[in-house]
Design a protein around this nucleic acid. Sequence first.
DNA 1: TACAAAGTGTATAATAGTGTATAATAAAAG
DNA 2: CTTTTATTATACACTATTATACACTTTGTA
Lengths: 208, 208
Amino acid sequence: MKIELSQKQADAIRYVRNWLMNKGKTPSVRELMTALGYKSPRSAAIIIEELIRKGILKKRSNGDLQLIKDIDADSVHARTVDIPLVGMVTCGVPIFAQENIEGFIPVSVSLAKPGFKYFLLRAKGDSMNQAGIDEGDLILVRQQSVAKNGDIVVALIDNDAIVKEFQHHKNCVVLMPKSNNKKHKPIILTENFQVQGVVVTTIPNLEV
Amino acid sequence: MKIELSQKQADAIRYVRNWLMNKGKTPSVRELMTALGYKSPRSAAIIIEELIRKGILKKRSNGDLQLIKDIDADSVHARTVDIPLVGMVTCGVPIFAQENIEGFIPVSVSLAKPGFKYFLLRAKGDSMNQAGIDEGDLILVRQQSVAKNGDIVVALIDNDAIVKEFQHHKNCVVLMPKSNNKKHKPIILTENFQVQGVVVTTIPNLEV
DNA sequence: TACAAAGTGTATAATAGTGTATAATAAAAG
DNA sequence: CTTTTATTATACACTATTATACACTTTGTA
């Protein structure tokens, strides 16, 4: 199924995706306006309406946008798969639920191997900079609920997605930070919590 | 039944929980304000109003807040509370005094249950290695002044935090070492000494 | 007891940002 | 030319946040 796109609409999609990758959220109407060279918010709003009508964008309940499908994926790059970018993790909701997914980013199949389930996460804070993960990086995570000692895992703690080193001891599990910054503490847990996945690789933030 | 929470609201809940755990009361509007990074009490008040509306907080007759239901600790999302790490115990100073606390470490609420007061202690020496406590281990201690026979208790003797097995006899209390090292002797005390707490669990050799 | 200081919850108005809608204008097409 | 389309300037309603003020309680001190 081919979708007809105007030049401006294609630009808008690319812009939304880049904004999503670099800032972790979709742009506002006025931000899209200036990015596309318009001088009125109405112009950008019309582009958005069209893309929603074509099923590429969606409007969430809170008003934010959501990038449903990536238009490059089915046309140009055959050797990529669309991996969901998980934003704010909503309380009590599976990490792959619709409301957690900000959009889809094409990732090379040499990283995201067929047969496994992956998601992308945006790193915040510097608690993992010793492990090569800096603020704003995108983290490619393979979904699995088991981990072995030394794995860098993603876990949901206190309504936040935490990325730390997994250490299983006799009675408990400790999630260790890999920062040299003393302010980052380990987290001590019982065994009855769920690991969301293990980090495969990180994609450095292109911006800055 | 799921409750939609914004990030700020989730932060607020965690903050209230920790405040409750460590200070025995809920924070004031302005304390929550600074904790959440706001600059106006109105902003924190709105968060509180929302959480009251969602049935998570409640306002008592005297105006204090009350944490009605913490989001149920299911297997996916682990909840934590910040437990003070007590370093060197200073002479004559209560164990929870500011000068004794090195920092706070998040511990799962399934280990540190709300309603009790806990602290973490670093084990030194090998007097408890038979009981699975080695040098450098972190010990999670529930604060209480009574103990029953067989409990591993923390007691302050001669300005030192001692971890030993509690045994109450007719006229005296004996603190038994559990080491196979002969140099560690039992300590015989009269009843007028203070038990600081009982050991809940130990975390092997955590470098913080 | 009286007073002052600090901390409390609450309320108001102002600001900045948001999405959206209207009517006027400019460009393109018939 | 007229008609249609795209774009503009502008306004409106809404939300989040801010600075600030007010009335009240507690607390220590003179």
